[in-house]
Design a protein around this nucleic acid. Structure first.
Length: 111
DNA sequence: GGAGTGACGCGGC
DNA sequence: AGCCGCGCCACTC
């Protein structure tokens, strides 16, 4: 029985997010697809909420498909997310990742 | 056990 | 071309 517990959903999201290289960004949709749930992009963001407890999950590197820091408001500080990104060399202007497409990192489907 | 919510994505107007 | 609304999936109360 290769039954995959739905609880793994979060774990899977975390695993993928953890694989995001330093100084790179990814999208909820891409992660959702990587875990085999392209329609669950929303749930991915939900998982990010719980990921706050996991320092290994760089949720700040996850933005929406537009490259907007939609979840920045959920971080401790008002601009914590942007600061973390800037710290990695990711420039953010108006809550949008500069050269987002260039910094965008797509997870391995094999993962 | 049902209903509401949410850090998205896409389609339609 | 921008703006509005719906759908989907997992989780909590």
């Amino acid at each position: 029985m290769v039954k995959l517990d739905k609880s793994d959903f979060f774990d899977r999201v975390y695993k993928v997010v953890r694989e995001i290289p330093h100084g790179r960004v990814s999208t909820y949709g891409a992660i959702a697809k990587a875990i085999g749930a392209p329609q669950s992009a929303r749930t991915v963001g939900y998982a990010m909420n719980a990921s706050h407890n996991l320092p290994d999950v760089p949720a700040h590197r996850v933005v929406n498909r537009n490259g907007m820091l939609t979840g920045k408001h959920h971080f401790a500080g008002r601009d914590t997310m942007q600061r973390l990104l800037a710290q990695e060399g990711v420039m953010v202007e108006q809550d949008c990742v500069v050269n987002f497409e260039g910094l965008l990192w797509l997870p391995d489907p094999l993962l």
